[in-house]
């Protein structure tokens, strides 16, 4: 099999792209979530929330560029089909990301009288980005066909992804702050968790119903046997996190990191389920990764680069999280 790169390269690149999407969703998920939670906090708390994501958000969004970039460079035909079908939500996503990205800087650099306005734009942009991502996920799951029932479903997933991000954001604040804000954040995260459970269930039910192929993949014997741990684990993570968030913060701030890991693992399980369902398709039921892949010689040269560079990226990202470990201060710019 390794003799012919055309056989394994598309799989490797689909995995890399999937990994980028997963990392993006978890990392930008928490900073978008913090943006969504802004209106629920007091003004001083807002500063602290922002400073908890300040050093990270830019690198977090770079994972989206990498994911879209991999789709673009490894599966160019699919890139055109998917982004063509999602033209309007993509434009709205971009407007959302633009607004929140610049509001980040403007809110502390513009005249103080505009700070509220930029805070609102930061919230609105974060929410818009989260909603459009959820909307696109919903349409994608149903095969990118724009019909009225599909739009209704996509609106549901939009709200649930936004709720899921709010859950991650809340969990991140629990991890990075303390005091009254930490307690509030635990409650926000719990609410977000409950709301996102609905979307999780909806997608899990809709994908096998929308596609006989996916139904076959999950419910055939003996696959169902070794697949059953996945939904069970996901359910356990939901329940465990729900109970845990009800008790946060614990004495001496123990386990402050646990809600975030729990929230991230829920996204991981959801991702694994989706990846299993849709493999080998990159455009559901229309185009497989093998049909859409670029030429092997081009994929290979990118793979060489990725193998060398990705560990470097991982290590200096880890360095950054280590440098900015501990609770976030209220003032973002510390020099």
């Amino acid at each position: 099999m390794f003799d012919d790169p055309a056989l394994w390269l598309p799989f490797v690149f689909a995995s890399l792209m999937g990994l980028s999407i997963l990392i993006y969703v978890i990392l930008d998920g928490y900073d978008l979530g913090v943006g969504i939670l802004m209106p629920f906090a007091e003004e001083a708390e807002q500063d602290r929330m922002i400073s908890s994501i300040g050093p990270f958000w830019d690198a977090n969004e770079t994972w989206l560029v990498l994911a879209v970039g991999l789709l673009l460079v490894a599966f160019p035909i699919a890139h055109g089909v998917i982004l063509g079908a999602l033209y309007l939500p993509v434009a709205l996503l971009l407007i959302g990301l633009i607004m929140r990205g610049v509001a980040f800087e403007f809110r502390i650099k513009a005249h103080a009288k505009y700070k509220r306005l930029w805070n609102r734009l930061f919230f609105a942009g974060s929410l818009l980005a989260a909603l459009t991502q959820g909307f696109m996920l919903g349409l994608y799951v149903l095969g990118l066909e724009v019909t009225l029932p599909n739009i209704a479903f996509a609106l549901l997933t939009a709200i649930c992804v936004a709720a899921g991000y709010a859950m991650l954001g809340g969990a991140w604040i629990v991890f990075k702050t303390d005091g009254a804000l930490q307690r509030k954040a635990a409650a926000w995260a719990r609410f977000g968790l409950a709301a996102s459970a609905i979307g999780f269930a909806a997608i899990s039910a809709a994908s096998p119903l929308a596609s006989p192929r996916i139904f076959e993949k999950w419910f055939a014997w003996p696959e169902i046997l070794w697949l059953s741990p996945l939904p069970l684990l996901a359910g356990a993570a939901f329940l465990g996190l729900f109970v845990l968030l009800g008790r946060m913060p614990l004495k001496d701030d123990r386990w402050a990191w646990a809600p975030f890991i729990g929230g991230a693992s829920i996204f991981l399980f959801a991702f694994l389920g989706l990846a299993y369902s849709f493999y080998p398709y990159v455009v559901p039921e229309r185009l497989t990764i093998y049909e859409a892949a670029s030429a092997p010689e081009s994929l290979l040269i990118m793979l060489y680069g990725a193998v060398i560079v990705v560990p470097v990226i991982a290590s200096y990202s880890a360095l950054s999280y280590w440098i900015f470990r501990g609770k976030a201060a209220a003032d973002l710019y510390d020099h």
Binding site: G54, A59, L66, G305, V309
Partner: peptide, 24 residues
Amino acid sequence: GPLLAYEILTAFFLEAVFLGIMLF
């Protein structure tokens, strides 16, 4: 594709991560 990929891999992450360290 590869030219864009190399831009993302070698430049975008580098500047994004170290900008965080530089600013904060």
